[in-house]
């Protein structure tokens, strides 16, 4: 499991730019990133090496955020990689609320961040299928 930072963004030109500027000025590199949007606001979801530093500087700059655990899985960067992961979750009757992908400098390797409705069942299903889960420490080595 890895720590994900969710940041509230007002639906306004420049809101996202303002957030990324704060990250840039503090030398924070994004490992993975996704943006969810409703009609009048958005949530930016970030995966970073240093969760403490990132959440501190964002708070200092007036952002509202929440930190939570999400699943991160490693898979081959090849056709069928994601399908295999999702089929194995489906087999355990686990629903996925959201999902986003990222790669690293490791050739042939892709990663997925996913938020299952049942964390325990999801972890068990992935383990049984031999799908490797990534921990927070590993992000630092990427």
């Amino acid at each position: 499991m890895v720590r994900q930072i969710s940041v509230f963004l007002e639906n306004k030109a420049g809101a996202l730019a303002q957030m990324t500027r704060v990250l840039a000025d503090n030398g924070i590199n994004l490992r993975a990133f996704s943006l969810a949007e409703a009609s009048d606001f958005g949530i930016a979801r970030l995966i970073v090496n240093d969760v403490y530093l990132t959440s501190t500087v964002l708070k200092e700059n007036g952002f509202v955020l929440a930190v939570a655990n999400v699943l991160a899985v490693a898979m081959p960067d090849a056709p069928g990689g994601l399908a295999h992961v999702l089929e194995c979750l489906k087999g355990a009757n686990v629903n996925v609320e959201y999902i986003y992908a990222f790669t690293s400098d490791k050739p042939g390797q892709a990663y997925m961040i996913l938020r299952p409705d049942d964390e325990t069942a999801a972890m068990k299903a992935l383990r049984n299928a031999g799908i490797r889960q990534v921990e927070q420490e590993e992000l630092g080595e990427m």
Binding site: Q4, S6, F8, E10, A36, A38, F41, I43, R45, V64, L65, A66, A68, E97, R115
Partner: peptide, 15 residues
């Protein structure tokens, strides 16, 4: 104004 107490990663809950 959004506050840390009100905010959650769950979009449905906020809506």
């Amino acid at each position: 104004e959004m506050t840390p107490e009100m905010f959650t990663d769950n979009m449905g809950e906020i809506a």
